[in-house]
Design a protein around this nucleic acid. Structure first.
Lengths: 349, 349
DNA sequence: TTGTACGCGTTATCAA
DNA sequence: TTGATAACGCGTACAA
């Protein structure tokens, strides 16, 4: 491998000068600069990142800790992070915890070992042990900035970007109420899960704001997965007085609800309205397409990296929390296509 | 940051001894080892990867170059790669080319700069310029092993893992023929695209093997995207003698076909059978669920890394090509649910 | 079994 | 405007 020495020799200058040309630092005469450039090119030189990192203490790497990249809700965020990072030629390391704390701890210590310049932490699980908190604190003490996306970790005060779940569910409930629904069921995530609780609270408060008391029979807990949505929908549809609408806490469960309705011969949206949350791409691919809360995940990814870079650049201010406002995408799972067309035409008149 | 010197001092030994303990190399007495272990722990030491890399010349990083991680067909592969890499505590850098050659070239030189230990190259595009080849050759000359997954690059002889498209389409055509279809349309990828051509050829040969001549009117080119599948399906369904089955070269296009059929009031599978390729998760989520060729993407990812590690470890042999045999997943888009149930029952008798 | 000292390839400081 | 050289923190050959 060609080193800076080889380039210096070829250009007939010192290594210091080559370094100056490479890093656009210090003074170099135009003539020397040209010589060096040529040597650089002809030798196809690329600086050794290890030697460089030893001095600069920057790895130009950021870590993205998430539950599982196979969950489509994460993919646009990951892509947003990658794109924003690449603007400064940073690369992103993806760590799939699968909700396993031991794994996450391994990952956090790896992140520390390899000296990432920053971390984006995005997990749906609420950790039970304090070890994760300890490791995150160690990282912070080392000066590694962290931006939180999913579940906040108790006692770790860092910048946070979060979705306004209250607003999201207000949009959902408002929409359903306008359609005449009063008996609205909710399929949430696991108990003792921060995000699940936040969305449940958001649902209940929205209902109350419309003067509807929530029937506790209609509040179900599942696992954020399609199969969980299916199972809970089956339960709800088998009730003596089944709900006329089911609001799921995420799209995957809502898709499970759709499948369950179809299997039980329940027509959507005529007999049952269904809504999701996240607006993953599948929401538009399924039939009927799913009314969902649009979370601008790609932008959230970009935004997180912007904050991370501020910290990497040494900006010093108190941790802040940014709320992202979602919007509603109305589709066939709540409003029949013909009705939507009629509505659109009425609006355009 | 604590260094090996600090640990040595704390343990009352030399840095060499600490290094020996850390790397399980050389002889260290049990007593000293214990002292060092304690110092290691109490100082919460982690070796500087830059200094280490400078010596070992290993970054413990591998690059995964693909078209776009937002395409669900890639996600399981990425996850397989990550999981297999993590077994040796390697991490994976994802590079989304978006089919843009300039971007890919930037990426390849970044990969070289940061001294990744290996590369997995997985692209649907067939590059037009020779620059990509040049960069890949540079990498190979530097001793960086490469495993190809998608489109082979002309003139770059490396290990390759590829799907047996011929087998895949044979399964599709066989299935459709058994159902009585003869007038089968094909919606492929762009012209001059390796994978698209390979799958088209696979389709044509399968058809011929069943003694069916392919009507060139029924062979369409699209872009591997849902919208492309929709548009070509619209064209096919508007023909005087429309096909009774449409085989798409990937699932996304097939899902577009399903949507188009629904919009035109064509019942699937009764009036039109539809098949995909890749078996992305959406294939089971859509309605009707999609008959598709199951490509074991996760395993392909793992397999690629296994080969990469062999090369990283210095195995010396000629480049080999591994063919992955796909299987068929029969779902509602070709066989009505009731028929499948009947069939199953008949089989179990 | 342990320690000393060199070299890995940069960047940065200081002197020229 | 340029060059010599001292770090950076580790692994390892060699000496003890």
């Amino acid at each position: 491998m060609v080193t800076i020495q080889d380039v210096a020799r070829a250009a007939g200058v010192s290594t210091a000068t080559v370094s100056r040309v490479m890093n656009h630092s210090g003074y170099v005469s135009e003539k020397t600069r040209k010589k060096v450039r040529e040597a650089l090119k002809s030798l196809n030189y690329s600086p050794n990142p290890f030697a460089k990192g030893l001095i600069t203490r920057k790895s130009e790497l950021i870590g993205y800790v998430l539950t599982n990249i196979e969950n489509p809700a994460y993919v646009p965020t990951a892509r947003g992070i990658q794109d924003a990072a690449w603007v400064r030629h940073y690369q992103v390391l993806i760590y799939n915890t699968d909700g396993n704390e031991a794994r996450e701890i391994e990952f956090l210590s790896h992140l520390r070992r390899i000296r990432v310049d920053g971390i984006i932490h995005d997990s749906v699980e609420t950790p039970e042990s304090h070890l994760i908190r300890t490791h995150l604190s160690d990282l912070l003490n080392d000066g590694v900035p962290i931006v939180m996306l999913g579940t906040p970790i108790e006692g770790v005060r860092v910048d946070r970007v979060s979705i306004n779940n209250a607003k999201g569910f207000h949009l959902i409930v408002e929409h359903l109420v306008q359609l005449g629904h009063r008996r609205i069921a909710f399929i949430g995530g696991p108990e003792k899960n921060f995000i699940a609780e936040d969305r449940l609270k958001a649902f209940v408060q929205s209902m109350e704001s419309f003067g509807i008391e929530v029937d506790s029979e209609l509040v179900r807990h599942a696992d954020f997965r399609e199969s969980g949505g299916y199972a809970e929908a089956a339960h709800l549809l088998a009730m003596d007085r089944p709900p006329t609408a089911i609001a799921a806490a995420n799209d995957l469960m809502a898709i499970g609800v759709l499948r369950c309705a179809r299997d039980h011969g329940v027509r959507v949206p005529e007999e049952l309205a269904v809504t999701g949350f996240d607006d993953i791409r599948d929401a538009t691919l399924v039939f009927p397409s799913l009314t969902s809360v649009v979370v601008p995940s790609y932008d959230i990814g970009k935004r997180s990296v912007a904050i991370l870079f501020e910290r990497i650049d040494g900006v010093d201010r108190l941790p802040e929390e940014i709320f992202i406002e979602p919007v509603l995408a109305i589709r066939e799972s709540t409003v029949p296509r013909t009705a939507r067309r009629a509505k659109r035409e009425a609006a355009s008149r």
